[in-house]
Design a protein around this nucleic acid. Structure first.
Lengths: 332, 332
DNA sequence: CTGAAAGCGCTAACAC
DNA sequence: GTGTTAGCGCTTTCAG
């Protein structure tokens, strides 16, 4: 076991108070005392005990990231930004996967860990806004995505509807007339897909074009592939697909090319999220690029501000996005 | 603030000892007492304080995953398996990124967090085996990858050399004669790339074929793209590239197709890691598929066993892999 | 089966 | 500037 404060104090011939001062660097300590204490600290390899600090001070230095799955590229990239930026707050990120399951989300939100951490950043899929606000007194929660929770919780989102409309307009502008959407998730309360669908429909309506929507179970490549297969097997007249995530789009793209379609010649394919895979796909994937570092920054800022003032008015931060046009939606 | 043991005890008219017994479920408690206490617990929404438990019991229930970057698909998939399986041990995963930097690896290995957690699972890139064994008394460390640390640390690895040789043999068997390797990292002490290079060279030597090796700085798609560009710009005679990661391969593939090469017609492309992107690439990527769930399982088992017996002989677990042949290395 | 109390390592209020 | 000490919430030894 490593040394504790008292042992350092004894060996340096000072009180624990003084050692504590040296370690935390706050209060004034005579230079020579400080040096002597520091020497003993180095000698003994003393490290402050985080559990004791946590118990005493109430801060753990831990922030939980609660999301459907860390292996999804979008969340992986986001987690990377969060972990990097969390350092500026001396926070360490803790990852908890829900699989998008409501019961599991509930469990993580109310469980023991939720008290251990200084805050939670969560991307809810299964829980409704109402569910989210009903939780025991615990660490503050920042929501990622479209779950607004009636303005009762801090919340970082994109303007999903506008983004989807922008992308749909782009497809129309490049000459597409039969644009299918892949990615609705009618079984989820998660509003993200619904917002994107709304933008898609609005853009089509403005041009008098018909909508065609294919629901999916999850947002993996396999689901995009299945949806595309379904579309082609049913002989649908379609010259573009707008997928609500890049992963779906990559699955759809794979099937389309496999079936001998030329992309973008016969079919335009677009996604959403701007994951790195899309940039290197063949052809490269047109997508909506959310400012991911900004999402991370906003989430951490919300948490820090909330910790500083538990009664501040909940914020809704809308992070910018950008339409990223690449080869997959070139002219026919 | 939420209730504590004493408050529950007072309200239930019992001692803290009894409440503690009810909560932990270990010792015997009279059924009716238990029920009464449980009712108060529910009433007050009591949750045990993890910091106090940690301070008292010395276990935090936290395991640190220390890796170059969580946004890399390989590590993302691995982290997903680890997070899932950690639950069986009542462990929560904490993510720390090093960027592959030695100083940062050192810092995380010796820092405060390293004492907070029950154990560390690390994929070292910058630190040498010798560096890794030289650390203050701290939580046990399990190594991922080729860093053997002289048999002094628990260690989960692939048979990288055999895997690379298998893949190279496969390329030779399908008629390739000018097989370049992309992915050496001469600036890193990390032995993984070196082992893969050894397997590649061995296989080529056995067939009397020449080796051609392109070093890379990092293992991102952009590095694979740069290496491929370099190869093509120098007019190298090459009919296959073996990339030491799928990410490199996807970058190389992108450039090759962009330059008008047919894959696999003119050029075969193969990777390593079996990340999901590779399965849906166009053409789908031939690769070495490590058993990732098994890696996660082995790492957690090592940690648990080490915690049970700090003096057990360090283990080296070799996890199986499989050659996954897909379209990108079809016949010319 | 239950109660009293020590103590995990630290911080900070209170002394001097 | 430095020493002394209470107490954060819990588990567990020792009594009963």
């Amino acid at each position: 076991m490593s040394a504790n404060l008292r042992q350092v104090a004894e060996r340096a011939g000072v009180s624990v108070r003084t050692v504590s001062n040296v370690v935390s660097g706050f209060a004034l300590v005579a230079p020579e005392t400080r040096e002597r204490v520091q020497r003993v600290i180095d000698e003994l390899g003393y490290r402050p005990n985080a559990a004791a600090r946590h118990l005493r001070g109430g801060r753990s230095g831990l922030v939980a990231l609660v999301l459907p799955e860390i292996s999804s590229p979008y969340f992986g990239e986001l987690a990377g930004h969060l972990a990097d930026q969390a350092e500026a707050y001396a926070w360490t990120l803790l990852v908890q996967q829900t699989g998008g399951d409501a019961a599991r989300e509930r469990e993580l939100l109310d469980g023991v860990r939720a008290q251990t951490v200084d805050g939670l950043i969560m991307s809810p899929w299964g829980l409704s806004p109402a569910d989210l606000t009903r939780r025991p007194d615990s660490a503050p929660l920042v929501l990622l995505g479209e779950q607004d929770a009636g303005g009762l919780l801090d919340h970082v989102a994109l303007d999903n509807e506008t983004a989807a409309a922008d992308l749909t307009h782009h497809l129309i502008k490049t000459g597409r007339r039969h644009i299918a959407a892949i990615g609705l998730q009618p079984h989820l309360v998660n509003g993200t897909a619904a917002r994107r669908a709304a933008g898609y429909r609005r853009a089509l309506a403005e041009s008098g074009l018909p909508a065609r929507e294919i629901p999916v179970d999850r947002l993996h490549r396999a689901d995009g592939a299945a949806a595309m297969t379904h579309l082609l097997d049913n002989g649908a007249e379609v010259d573009a697909v707008f997928c609500f995530s890049d992963q779906l789009a990559l699955g759809a793209l794979h099937v389309a090319l496999d079936r001998g379609l030329r992309v973008p010649g016969d079919l335009a394919v677009a996604g959403f999220d701007d994951i790195e895979d899309g940039r290197y796909a063949n052809p490269a994937l047109t997508t909506i690029a959310p400012d991911k570092p900004a999402i991370a920054r906003a989430a951490l800022t919300c948490l820090a501000d909330r910790l500083a003032d538990r009664n501040a008015h909940p914020r809704r931060v809308v992070v910018p996005h950008r339409l990223e046009v690449r080869a997959s939606t070139g002219r026919r």
